[in-house]
Amino acid sequence: MSQRILPPALLLAALAFAAAPLVTPPFMGYDPAIFPVIIARPSVQPAGYAFAIWGVIYLWLIVHAGFAMLRRNGDAAYLRPALPLLGALILGTLWLAIAGSYPITATAVILIMAALALTAYLRADPTDERWLLAAPLAIFAGWLTAAAAVSLGVILAGYGVLSDTAAAIAMLILVLAVALPVQASRPHMPVYGATVTWAITGIIVANWGLNDVVTNAAVAGAVVMATATLALSQSRKPAY
């Protein structure tokens, strides 16, 4: 894609991504009746309040794309992450339309979205206008790291590959296995780790008093992620 076309395309994609929930049915999780194993409330799924972070993600991505087009058009620092970010936003705009009826397809799509968002984030220079360049990509990638695992966990439990509890614990391990190295690669950008911690905390809240095994595992996961994020952010030499 031409470097001239990429910045306006990215802004249009960010706007479309933010507008998608306004023109598609609200997504409240996969319909349990779709699956062979009916689980009314999957343990891997965070409490509803946690999804409010999408408002921050939408706004920050629009600001990022708008600033890139209006003030940094052609700047290599903004162009490097632009293409994978564009791909993630386009897939995200389509995701709501398929999630309600096609959970396996939706899971495949969100896994690709997460990979693209992580690629975009890791291409962003964390020392160059960090709150307009790296930080919005960090919160997007952080949430998708968790969201992709949640979607996969629901599929694994819904199709009986793992029990509900086992799927939740397996996905918590997967999230940490991905998130800890990513955070270590960008130690002075705590937005990513804080976002993953937010998502895991939502799992704690959702399971409190209902599933002690998942609650305890999520508490441990949140502590590990938060501690690592804080410790890395205070390290003296950025590992960039």
Score class of each variant (00 low, 15 high):
84 P>A: 07
108 A>I: 12
83 L>N: 07
57 I>P: 01
64 H>F: 15
134 A>F: 08
87 G>K: 02
89 L>D: 10
62 I>P: 04
64 H>W: 07
87 G>D: 02
67 F>W: 15
116 L>E: 07
70 L>W: 10
78 Y>I: 08
125 D>M: 12
76 A>W: 04
66 G>T: 02
65 A>C: 08
113 M>I: 15
110 I>P: 01
50 A>Y: 00
111 L>W: 01
63 V>K: 00
104 I>S: 07
55 G>A: 07
84 P>G: 09
67 F>M: 11
123 R>L: 13
123 R>K: 13
100 G>F: 04
98 I>D: 00
120 A>Q: 08
86 L>V: 08
88 A>N: 02
117 A>N: 03
64 H>D: 11
107 T>A: 07
85 L>Q: 12
49 Y>C: 00
94 L>N: 00
91 L>Q: 04
58 Y>S: 03
76 A>N: 08
136 P>S: 09
103 P>M: 11
57 I>V: 12
92 G>H: 04
79 L>Y: 09
134 A>M: 09
135 A>E: 14
81 P>W: 08
53 I>V: 14
90 I>Q: 01
75 D>M: 07
94 L>V: 08
87 G>F: 02
122 L>R: 14
89 L>Q: 11
56 V>R: 00
122 L>F: 05
89 L>G: 09
83 L>F: 13
73 N>S: 15
129 E>Y: 04
121 Y>G: 09
49 Y>Q: 03
92 G>L: 03
117 A>Y: 02
64 H>E: 12
53 I>N: 03
90 I>E: 01
128 D>M: 13
83 L>M: 15
75 D>P: 09
111 L>G: 06
74 G>W: 13
127 T>Y: 04
116 L>R: 04
131 W>S: 11
110 I>R: 01
59 L>N: 04
71 R>Y: 05
56 V>G: 01
113 M>N: 05
80 R>C: 06
122 L>Y: 03
117 A>D: 02
101 S>W: 07
58 Y>P: 02
89 L>C: 11
120 A>P: 10
84 P>W: 06
134 A>E: 09
89 L>K: 12
118 L>S: 06
94 L>E: 00
89 L>A: 12
81 P>K: 09
82 A>W: 05
111 L>T: 12
81 P>I: 11
133 L>R: 15
82 A>R: 09
63 V>R: 01
73 N>K: 15
102 Y>Q: 14
126 P>V: 05
122 L>G: 09
92 G>R: 04
90 I>V: 15
127 T>N: 12
76 A>Q: 13
128 D>A: 12
72 R>D: 07
72 R>F: 10
130 R>D: 08
68 A>W: 08
51 F>Y: 12
86 L>Y: 06
80 R>Y: 07
105 T>F: 13
